[in-house]
Design a protein around this nucleic acid. Structure first.
Lengths: 194, 194
DNA sequence: TTTGCAACCGACCTTTCGGTCGGTTAAACT
DNA sequence: AGTTTAACCGACCGAAAGGTCGGTTGCAAA
């Protein structure tokens, strides 16, 4: 009947979804409790407070999902093509609602970096990990690219543009502007080839 | 002694600053009241509620400042050079604290677009106005640029990258990553020339 | 079968939020 | 001088937030 780990996972999943949709601060524990059909006591048995719950969501849900998304296209034979396909697929396959929610990592970065140090360092670590992932895979095929490129700089540029583009969707409520930016981003990426 | 308009302006300026630093939701009226050294009654005499205060800050503080920032570099003789100088100046002249606060428009876009329709339409209008401003001025010098460029698409791309780059500063607490992206952005922009 | 403890319950607490409202003050007009 | 009203005051309100804690329940080991 009782399964502590299952309860914990349920809390994490529901919390991840709520935080993704509403942000961390605006997500209320009572809402999470209702969706999980558990009591406040249960939640506080598994997590010492809201902040720790947030950290757990970040580390156990967002971070793995984040890497699982970016890694395959980047470790493809041709990371340039991989990235373009990756971005294009988003334009096509993601629903408008998903798009508007944005990237959980970027959302938390905007909301929590200035407020909470614990979130800030976790987010920063994630961003640096992604940057390394991109830069490494670009340098892996550097002989196919233009000479004298700063791969780390390019990696930050790509990610910035991608995250910035989701901001556009949030106000326009449609994919059009997002698509525009992604199209131009793909042009930019392909242009890196010699 | 009593100057209604001065009180109103004081409220707007302080509110703009607080919202810029903390976001709209996290900004408390009591904090604004304390900084303005006025009572709650005074605030509610000038603004019917918090949301209306937010709208007023957007329209009377953020929007004019936003246009005043972007317009000059874009309407310069060479908008390409104007934009590069504009971005580079930010890297150099802005303090780390300013940088971390980010662009008020983008902050509100991330925070409020999904929550409040009134904010959303104002933000969207602003973004479209900026897009038009950039696209128009690029097409003005189109004979100096590569052929067959989609100016609107490029404009959205530039703004996305710029806004995305401020996200990086928020987690890293320094200008380095921001500088990286801006440098690459300037490369991209200059490359538009034929 | 008993016992111990992790798992869970839910009433209650404090704080803070946006917002209300009856009252007061100062200044402009008659 | 008297009157009116915009400008302002601040005590108070209900709602909702995160968090606490004494109590209950169910399962597993002894």
């Amino acid at each position: 009947m009782r399964d502590a780990e299952q309860t914990r996972q349920k809390i994490l999943q529901v919390s991840a979804d709520e935080i993704h949709k509403n942000g961390f601060t605006a997500t209320s524990l009572s809402c999470i409790l209702a969706r999980c059909e558990i009591s406040k006591g249960a939640l506080y048995h598994h997590f010492s407070n809201k902040m720790e719950l947030g950290y757990a969501v970040f580390e156990e849900v967002y971070a793995p999902a984040f890497i699982a998304r970016w890694q395959p296209p980047l470790e493809a034979e041709d990371p340039i093509q991989g990235l373009c396909d990756f971005f294009s697929a988003m334009s096509k396959e993601m629903s408008c609602e998903e798009l508007i929610c944005g990237c959980p990592l970027n959302n938390l970065c905007q909301e929590m970096s200035a407020i909470d140090e614990g979130f800030r360092i976790r987010i920063l670590a994630m961003q640096q990990q992604l940057n390394l992932l991109i830069a490494t895979n670009l340098s892996r095929v550097s002989q196919q690219l233009k000479p004298e490129l700063d791969f780390s700089q390019i990696a930050y540029f790509i990610v910035s543009t991608f995250h910035g583009s989701s901001s556009l969707s949030k106000s326009s409520l449609n994919k059009e502007l997002f698509d525009n930016v992604i199209k131009e981003l793909c042009c930019y990426i392909k242009q890196l080839k010699r």
